[in-house]
Design a protein around this nucleic acid. Structure first.
Length: 601
RNA sequence: GCGCCGGUAGCUCAGCUGGAUAGAGCACCGGAUUUCUAAUCCGGCGGUCGCAGGUUCGAGUCCUGCCCGGCGCGCCA
């Protein structure tokens, strides 16, 4: 199947040609029009180029238009305002492209005609990264959901993606935890794989209070850290039993969220941290080296970073006591990802407060020559999730809220919302079994949480509000899932399998609602392109919402068209194919957000 | 003190390399309905884009200064 060029790109290419024929060179600045009264697309290049060429923008716009060869795509372009060039796409062109996307669901067809990236990269997405000492809490949600979405989008674009879960399993607190475990579960050494800790949070608190109150235990904890780092087999065994159990807690959540990732904790990089230091020590010997010992710590000094007092602020790679910190481990991840995984792009999905940390780590890695210019390192930072009142997300007692509890609450509320709608269902198509209802509630609840998160721009904080995210109206998961389910319902009503629709009768776009839907469908690829280029995930939710709204109008009895009982058969078939394309676009879009669809709800 | 993020409609939020009259949802008001799943659709109301300057054909967007909120700034992660 031929992949299709986007309308936007096609228009841009034609305008570039027209510009070249006038001897001008520049960005054609083609965008979808904000208001359909200005057409479907607009080019804003005449204003800027007019200035450069010392010509009146409107005059230049007219010359561009006169040289444009575009009548296969667009109605005659209109010039408006100071020099906007407006395009109205011909329905026949839309129809021809859409007809090229056959029904069906095999992998190639599932791409919906969207091209993969021309040069696939190896990308590492560093996401989630909980501390294994404790239970995952609400603070881990955004990194997990955002990271997974970015990974899914990049994968779809044809890149090889590694999702690395950089869990905290190597800090000093693990000495304390292992020592405590040894006391309360003396049998753990005999049966490490049988270890079950129901509540990691409680376990941590117990260990911590013992550590604070019992000098003997404190000493033992410290000795345990040393034993752990020196790879004492017995200590390692207990430590591993603890980490495995903690990871089981994490993966219960990842499984639920359908997030697939690889655990590479700090311990995984233990040897590499020594390698980091070894290489830096070699550089330290050179003249004017940025690598120096300062106050006993091994540091990389960088330009442009200063402390509160204006002194140079270095990256500390090995502490004065010889221990490592998170800069050591992040530098180790870079070595591993570049040298072992062959990554050309590394994306750290970590909260915005750590922005400076990553700026410094990246700068250090470049400074010492470990990362070449053709490898990009990105800190994909994001704001905090706040409570509905705008305050930090805490329990009434001021403690952290477990992620599991948050998800459970969302699912429980989703169930109520769905059930309340079924009470007045008259269709009879929705008599769900207990199992079906469980599945619907779980899907809707988790979708609501993810969709709400991803529909916000990354930089800002947002307020976690269950009733908003579970609203049946507006840009929410329930609205999107419902839109999808309605389309699936059309297939049942029409008694057709969308995948088997005949492809030889074409797609007719006569009604404005059909044209609008066709145009919107064909903008998915461009949207996705921007999403992966700029990591603007909320653009994807916004697009899907617009698509769903456009479909609702298409389907509306007042302003839309008939579908199931449309005639003649060719028109019915055409409309069913538009339904199919919409359903698949919604499904794919939601899939990229990490959200599963429901055929009935 | 320096730096980062945020400040847009009553509320929650969009706003892509500067583009047309600043958008959406919720809420509120009004209309549509013999349902193709109305969890829908149409219309209305609603904003000195924190403040003040500047850049230009054009600024929510870029520059400068200031105000408010949050966060960060040497061995915690």
């Amino acid at each position: 199947m031929a992949t299709l060029k986007s309308i936007q790109t096609e228009l841009a290419d034609r305008i570039v040609k027209a510009l070249q024929s006038i001897g001008l060179d520049g960005d054609p600045l083609v965008f979808p029009s904000q208001d359909s009264k200005f057409g479907d697309y607009q080019s804003n290049c005449a204003m800027g180029l007019g200035k450069k060429a010392a010509r009146k923008p409107r005059e230049l716009a007219e010359e561009i238009v006169s040289r444009l060869q575009i009548d296969d795509i667009s109605e005659p372009p209109q010039i408006a305002g100071p020099g906007f060039i407006n395009f109205r796409i011909k329905p026949a062109f839309l129809s021809a492209i859409l007809a090229d996307i056959p029904p069906g669901s095999d992998p190639e067809r599932a791409r919906l005609g969207i091209e993969a990236a021309a040069s696939p990269e190896v990308v590492v997405v560093d996401l989630s990264s909980p501390n294994l000492a404790k239970e995952m809490h609400v603070g881990h949600l955004r990194s997990t959901v955002i990271g997974d979405c970015v990974a899914r989008c990049l994968e779809f674009m044809g890149h090889t993606v590694h999702r690395d879960n950089h869990v905290g399993d190597w800090g000093t607190q693990f000495g304390m935890l292992v020592a405590h475990l040894r006391h309360v579960r003396p049998d753990v050494a005999d049966n490490p794989s049988q270890l079950v800790i129901h509540d990691l949070e409680t376990f941590y608190i117990e260990a911590k209070s013992r550590f604070d109150e019992d000098e003997e235990f404190k000493k033992e904890s410290r000795e345990t850290v040393v034993a752990l780092q020196q790879a004492d087999p017995q200590t390692r065994l207990i430590w591993k039993a603890f980490c495995d159990e903690s990871l089981r807690h994490c993966h219960a959540i990842y499984d639920r969220l359908k997030v697939d990732l690889v655990d590479r904790g700090e311990s995984f990089y233990a040897d590499l941290m020594h390698e980091v230091v070894r290489r830096l020590e070699i550089l330290r010997g050179e003249d004017d080296s940025p690598v120096r010992i300062s106050d006993g710590a091994l540091c990389v000094f960088l330009d442009g970073f200063t402390t509160r007092d204006g002194d140079p602020l270095p990256v500390i790679v090995r502490k004065a006591d010889g221990g490592f910190n998170y800069a050591s481990s992040d530098l180790a991840t870079i070595l591993h990802r570049v040298e072992q995984l062959g990554a050309t792009r590394i994306i750290y999905v970590v909260g915005l407060p750590q922005k400076q940390h990553f700026e410094m780590v990246f700068a250090a890695a470049r400074k010492v020559g470990w990362v070449s210019e053709d490898v990009s390192m990105v800190h994909l930072g994001f704001g905090s999730m706040l409570s509905a009142t705008g305050k930090p997300f805490k329990t009434r007692e001021g403690g952290t809220v477990k992620l599991k509890d948050l998800l459970d609450e969302a699912v429980a509320k989703a169930r109520k919302v769905v059930e309340s709608q079924l009470d007045d269902d008259k269709g009879g198509d929705r008599a769900f079994t207990k199992e079906e209802m469980d599945h619907i509630a779980e899907t809707v609840g988790l979708a609501a949480v993810k969709y709400f998160d991803l529909s916000h721009s990354l930089a800002g904080d947002y307020k976690f509000d269950l009733s908003t995210m579970l609203s049946l109206e507006g840009n929410t998961a329930p609205y999107m899932l419902y839109a999808y389910a309605r389309i699936r319902s059309i297939a049942r009503k029409a008694d057709v399998d969308f995948a088997g629709l005949p492809t030889d009768v074409g797609i007719s776009l006569d009604h404005p609602a059909e044209v609008a839907l066709a145009l919107k469908l064909l903008q998915f690829g461009d949207t996705l392109g921007t999403v992966v280029r700029d990591y603007r995930l909320n653009l994807l939710t916004e697009y899907l919402f617009e698509l769903a709204k456009t479909f609702s109008r298409f389907y509306d009895k007042k302003i839309g068209v008939r579908i199931v009982d449309a005639s003649p058969e060719s028109v019915r078939n055409s409309r069913l194919r538009l339904c199919d394309l919409t359903a698949r676009t919604l499904k794919l879009g939601l899939h990229l957000l990490g959200i599963e669809t429901l055929d009935r709800m």
